[in-house]
Simulated assay, not measured.
Amino acid sequence: MSIDRRQFIGRSVALAATALPSLAPSLLTSQVHAGEDRLIIDTHTEVWTLDPKFPFNHPEAGAKLKVDVAAPIENLVGQMHDFGIRYAVLINPRYFGWDNSYIAHSLSLYPDLFVAHGLLQPEDPKIADKLRYWITERGFQGMRFSPIYHPKSTWLNSRDHDELWRTAEKLGAVFNYYIAPHQMPMLEEMAGRFPGVKIVVDHAGKPDLNAKDCWPEFRKMFRLKKFPQVWISNSEPYEMSELKKYPYEDTLPFYKAIYEEFGGQQLIWGTGYPRPRWELPMDQELEFVDKFCDFYTAADRELMLGKNALRIWKFAKS
């Protein structure tokens, strides 16, 4: 049985979750908005609870997945307060499988701070109906798909998914993809056929730095730049780095190449984690963009850290 890196961390890291005081959403919202120097939107945050009301049912590990540390919505709200992050996008971390109830619960608690993406079983024959339910009944704005876990599958551009994409166009849904470089042509096909669906590519397209020469495969993503409805998440360097040490200098040529190809208008930023944070604390997440990615212009950095997200999602008070 294989589980992804987040599941491994969740199982093996012995940390006590940091408990934060319970604060009213209205108070937190006012504090987040107070005294900010710039707009910061975290476009990829994951939360989970160990409350049995929201049982785990991981797509690969099932209900037997062992996670010792909770990362509840309250922790994320506290982090946003501490660092002046105005809005964030909630994404189901796969712990709950195709049940997005905890993400919906979190959204209902803090609707002024978040928008939500869930997960759908990609080969469910009723996938379009499930998309419609989560968006129209539960207030979600999109879904995340992870074809990287299905490296030989062709469901991404299957004709069976046409109804899903047509429904997404009608609903104004956003799709974000955790995808391997060799799968980019399939996404390129769907972006061309369904231009009304906004698309986010996670983890900078996940170049394989273990490969002898990963650039030919990695450059397949660059063909997506012709689509104005596509954005690349130029963030989370620890996801691709082989150095495993901040500031992950081996990732910088890839972020620079993406920037040179797509420009500031098609980049966004996201961290991937709430509290507890295991790999990169928030101050270093921001420092990485501000200091080490010195090839960004100041104006493009502002687009990437917040303003572009306003073109993708509808936040409550934006």
Rank of each mutant, 00 (worst) to 15 (best):
N100S: 04
I179E: 05
I3N: 10
P52K: 13
L119C: 09
Q284C: 03
V289A: 14
R301I: 06
P151H: 09
I127K: 04
E188V: 03
K170I: 03
P207N: 08
K256P: 00
A19Q: 15
L164A: 07
G97K: 10
R301Q: 14
F54K: 04
R138P: 00
E123M: 06
E137T: 06
M240L: 12
I41E: 02
E239Q: 10
A116L: 00
P253Y: 15
E60A: 06
K314P: 07
E285Y: 15
W278Y: 13
W165Y: 14
T271E: 05
V289C: 12
L252C: 02
P125A: 05
A173L: 01
P276D: 12
G35T: 07
L90F: 00
I135C: 01
K126W: 03
W231L: 03
Y238P: 02
I73L: 13
V174Y: 01
Y246S: 05
L305W: 04
K53R: 15
Y296M: 09
F114H: 09
Q229P: 01
E137K: 14
L28A: 15
L286W: 01
E36M: 10
C293A: 11
E236Q: 13
P185F: 06
L243S: 08
P52N: 12
D162M: 09
L109R: 14
R5S: 15
G35L: 07
E287F: 03
R132L: 14
I312V: 13
T136W: 05
K212G: 09
P21T: 11
R132A: 14
L76F: 00
P151F: 03
Y110C: 07
L156F: 01
K314G: 05
N210P: 06
W215Y: 08
M143E: 02
R94V: 00
G263Y: 05
G35W: 02
C214G: 09
A191D: 01
L267H: 10
I148E: 05
I268R: 00
S235I: 05
R275K: 15
W98L: 07
H58L: 08
L23N: 11
E285T: 12
E74D: 15
N234F: 04
Y246P: 02
I232E: 04
Y87H: 08
S233C: 09
P122G: 01
E163A: 12
F227W: 12
G118R: 01
L27D: 14
M184C: 07
R301H: 07
P21F: 12
L119H: 15
L305F: 03
H182G: 00
E60Q: 07
V32T: 08
G139R: 02
H44Q: 14
I9Y: 09
E46P: 04
P237G: 09
P25L: 08
S12A: 04
Y178S: 12
N100V: 01
S233F: 11
H203D: 06
E239A: 10
N57T: 05
P216T: 08
A34T: 13
G196N: 14
D37H: 13
Y87V: 01
L65F: 06
G118K: 04
K226I: 12
Y177F: 12
P151V: 09
K307W: 00
Y149F: 10
W98K: 10
P25D: 08
Q121I: 07
P253S: 14
I103K: 00
I312Y: 02
L109F: 00
